[in-house]
Structure formats: C-alpha cells, structure tokens
Design a protein around this nucleic acid. Structure first.
Lengths: 103, 103
DNA sequence: CGTTTATATGTTCATTTACTCATATTGTAA
DNA sequence: TTACAATATGAGTAAATGAACATATAAACG
C-alpha cells in the first residue's frame, strides 16, 4: 500500500518539482490551453512537453479534454497556485536575508 | 547560471518531495530538535536521516546550531507549513471527488 | 481512400536520487 | 590520554528521472 506517511504529499510536491512543469502551471494560470499553444510557449520538444503534461495529469493536478485534433489541458484545483505563490515568498525572504548580510 | 525560469522554485519543492523529509518537517513543527530525537522518531538509519537533514539545510529550509555533542535543527520559515497544509487540502479534495464518483 | 496535423509513446542514454555500510569528525568525560 | 557518544561523510549500488529521437495513434480534410 502507500507505505510511509506523507507519501501522497511527497508525490504531489514531486510533480511540481520541475522548472518546466512549474512553467506549464503558470501558463495555464490564464486558463485552459491546448498543447499546440503550450509547446511554443515553452520552446522545447513536443514529446518532452507531452510527458510533463502527462505526469501532471497522472498526479491529478491537470485534467484534459479533447477538441478535435487538439488536447486541452487545465488546472484542476487553483490552490496549486497558492503553493507556487508561497514558495516564491519563501524564496524572496531567503534571498532578502542573505542580501542584508552583505550590507 | 540558474538556467530555465522557476529553477529555484523547483528546487524548493524538490527538497520537500520526500516522505521522510516531510515527516522531519512535521516533527520540527513542534519546535527545534536534535538529531538524537529525530532519528528514533523516524525509526530509520541515522546516516540516512542525516543526509535528509543536510539536504533540507542546503536548500535553506532548515538551519542548525550545535549544542555540545548535539546538533539542533529548526525550520527557518514557518510558511513551509502552509505549503504542507495546502498540499493536504488539495489531496483531500481530490480524494473526496473520487469518492463521490462511486456513490 | 490517402494525407496532414496534433499529440502520445517506445526506446535509449546519462544523470540524479536514496539507501546501506563503514568510517571520519567532533565534542565530552573518565 | 583513552574511550565514548552524536553526527556527518565517503563509497557502492539499484532505481528513478529527464532528454532526445523516432514512431505510433487519432482526428480532420481533400
């Protein structure tokens, strides 16, 4: 079964723990988008992007629907953006403290 | 240099993306603790725990001070607990939705 | 039908991760 | 000093990850 405590939380964080996947989430913050829009926005291999999207979907962070040839992805729970915002604040404070140590 | 956007955010999430490290954070939510308290609470190899602590410290999530033979660790920014709480809420909703699909 | 477009997947490879065991380091005490 | 206690680190290994390239699938269109 799941094994150690916090396995699910760890999986969720792991899904977000990649620059490309975070960038995907940021792109989808505006609203749902097809792969054909996401790939050029990221400027990387389509197959690579597809795998990252698949991972985020497998972890329940994204959902998808088909529209003709296109596959449209969207963020399932907007609280993932809270995660991103909080992380940014933590980092900002971290750097701020280190900057002040040099003054 | 850092390379792609969101490298730092990704590193922060990656540091948290492990069941043992999340459990360490939960243990330290009560307050600072020495390794000698953390190891038995986790029930795993001391060397293993030490590495996870070192990782969390390297990423700026923990800080440490020495007290005689003991090394005391503590969480630097309590907003990491917001991350954990938000993650749990996201998961709770996720499971709740799936449960309702079976009714 | 065959062709084109959008997306997913198989395979290979190099890198990273997490773990274990043994050893090193550091501080304390007899 | 020697011995011990707490913690960190080196080395080895198995597994997971991410990237690239080629190929497969699926839907639309002529």
């Amino acid at each position: 079964m799941p094994g150690p405590k916090y396995t699910y939380e760890a999986e969720l964080f792991k899904a977000i723990s990649h620059p490309t996947r975070i960038e995907i989430l940021k792109i989808l913050q505006e609203g749902e988008k097809c792969v054909c829009d996401i790939v050029p926005a990221l400027g990387m291999e389509q197959s690579n992007v597809s795998r990252h999207l698949g991972l985020l979907k497998k972890e329940g962070i994204l959902s998808s629907r088909k529209d003709g040839l296109k596959m449209i992805y969207r963020v399932e729970d907007r609280r993932v953006f809270e995660l991103l915002d909080t992380a940014r604040e933590i980092l900002r404070k971290y750097w701020e403290e280190r900057r002040e140590m040099l003054l």
